[in-house]
Design a protein around this nucleic acid. Structure first.
Lengths: 226, 226
DNA sequence: CAGTGGTCTAGACCACTCT
DNA sequence: GAGTGGTCTAGACCACTGG
């Protein structure tokens, strides 16, 4: 009667092994672990699956195999940087979506030569004529909109949740499909209340965490739960 | 040669089925789906696993089986409410951690009779003498600390990431272990810069999303990416 | 070429829950 | 008691990667 499942026992033992190994150490192959633990490979894999999802192990096909994930490389990305499009980007792409009045600006966020997130913004082409042709990819998008079109952005209420990587995003980030990611989205208005920008960002949560700023609340606390 | 894995084909077909079924509809048992799709139950389960992680299906043991998850029930929880401990709580527990100088206040966050998160705060007992005995569980913790001990909280820099549910948290939230959750943590200082409070919250991201507030940036944009 | 992870099968037993 | 999901096994073949 396995009160605790065998795969969870395996996970615990693997965690202990893991804790004493330096970064990038090659791990034993799944078949060896299965024999060593007296469990089937399926069971070992279930334990390894969770450790990979938690970012503690890295799996690669071929002779390289499973290795201990480099630790202490959690990049901190501020909400300001995401919204203002201030993070280091590469492969910035501007698309006009098929026949529609929508322009999509997509970029891959990078820290230390690693892709850590994807940022995607949707704008109305009619509101920003010539954007797709004139956007300078080196300028943060929000700054470009302010400079070229005189947009004055108002307050923002972003929201945050988790999402599983779609096959497309997984390819961009170098993770497996269905990897849990941190998802941040917002709908931006200008100071006159006009909707301007619809954006979302997904972050590899094993590589980056989102930092926010909350100014002091001067002891008058509202019941703002909704 | 499965260019796309069979479990992913199954997932796509199941998503199509799902889209046309009302909330709470009983789904076909895994063994029937396996026969219907001509795949092994293991393969079907891998597809179902992802749909459950995405919150689209609910699995219960026994005769009830798998059902279509109720849609459109995403509660919005503000960062202010989490930090200020203003959300609806139940089962508030105060522990003094074994022999140490640490008091832990743990509560389960509730919306609409459903547990949606766990909030846990750690404080120094010597800094708040008598806290464990006198804390009125109905008062938001932060307000209690301000009122009883005169704490004036300073600015806060919470950070946000994803985490997999530990068996303990999974039990509190009614999810399976290793379910991806949204995790928010902070270290609070008072206005004099003294560390006061170490807290973390995990949220069921299939039931709740975190909302934040970002005041307008008056066109002078700093390069604050770190 | 040998070895790795990725997928898949056909079975089995268990704990649980409803009727 | 019957049926469900949860776990587990022992095998198999594949695609990919490195020496």
């Amino acid at each position: 009667m396995p009160v605790t499942p065998r795969y969870y026992q395996a996970k615990t033992r693997l965690l202990d092994l893991l804790a004493e190994l330096p970064d990038n150490t090659p791990f034993q192959p799944e078949r060896e672990l299965a024999e060593l633990f007296g469990m089937s490979r399926t069971t070992i894999r279930k334990a390894l699956d969770e450790l990979v999802l938690e970012g503690k192990l890295i799996r690669r096909v071929g002779r390289q195999g499973t290795t201990v994930a480099p630790r202490g490389q959690l990049h901190r990305v501020s909400l300001d940087a995401l919204v203002g499009d201030l993070a280091t980007r590469e492969s910035v792409v501007v698309r006009t979506l098929g026949g529609q009045d929508v322009v999509n600006v997509e970029s891959v966020l990078v820290r230390g030569d690693e892709p850590i997130g994807v940022r995607s913004t949707y704008l109305r082409a009619s509101q920003f004529p010539g954007l797709a042709e004139t956007y300078d990819h080196d300028v943060p998008l929000r700054r470009f909109l302010a400079g070229r079109y005189g947009v004055r952005f108002g307050d923002l209420h972003p929201w945050c949740t988790t999402a599983l990587a779609t096959p497309r995003v997984a390819g961009l980030l170098g993770v497996r499909p269905a990897t849990p990611l941190l998802s941040i989205a917002w709908l931006a208005h200008d100071v006159h209340g006009r909707a301007v920008e619809r954006s979302w960002v997904v972050l590899r949560s094993d590589r980056a965490q989102l930092t926010m700023h909350l100014p002091r609340t001067d002891h008058v606390v509202r019941e703002s739960t909704a």
